[in-house]
Amino acid sequence: MSTWLLLFRKEMLESTRNYKWIWIPLVFLLLGISNPVTTYFMPQILESSGVAADLVPVPTSVEIMAKSLSQYGTLGLLILALSFMGIVAAERQSGSAIMVLVKPVSHRSYILAKWSGMTVLTLAAVGLGQLGTWYYTNILFESVPFRLVWTSLLVYALWLLFINTITLFLSCLMKSVGGIAFISLGVAAVLAILTQVLDHTMKWSPSRLTGAASQILLSGQGGGDMWLAIALTIAFIAALLAGSVTASRRMWTKS
């Protein structure tokens, strides 16, 4: 069995034993369905607070789904960063990583197994959340074509994976786990703001993917610059992974 697969299975087993495989998908599911549910009850909530319900326009199904996606970008991202901040740093700190790296294991397999573990878990979580949103939107409002559901999800998930990779990279580089989460989220926030402010010059920005995903739901098309952003985000992820492997190796062999 290849070392990568062995380490990947260890990651999977670990996140099963510490319940990450249960709680993270369930929280994303709640994030996903909270928006259709509150929208459904909105007329009653408004009525009981004395506002005429027909003053507030009822959003369309695709609008509801687009808003759900943005939940993953805020609370979802916070949860992912907090869950993965110690993925490398904590093992290095406790010394358990020595037990792996003293065997004939390359830093590349070690880091790629970590990244794959994060990726599979993240995709499962947003996937479950999106399915929940879709299901609720369909039974409470008009139905949405499934093609829009999964394409928008993939585009949005790529943004989350990009931030995950930053968290992994920082985890190879830094000691303080709090700092790792803080900087990861900071990068996400700064990128989002810069992309909005410098709309014309930041067409390549990974944070464009969030807008593109909403566009897919609202208009069926991600917009002209989407593929540029997708290609560059994938390139960034690859570069960050290479950086993580180098950082991990340096951290061990130089100090």
């Binding site: 670990e14 010394g95 358990s96 037990m99 003293v102």
Partner: peptide, 8 residues
């Protein structure tokens, strides 16, 4: 075997 072995 390191001085302070740490396991999973």
């Amino acid at each position: 075997l390191p001085q302070y072995p740490s396991f999973f």
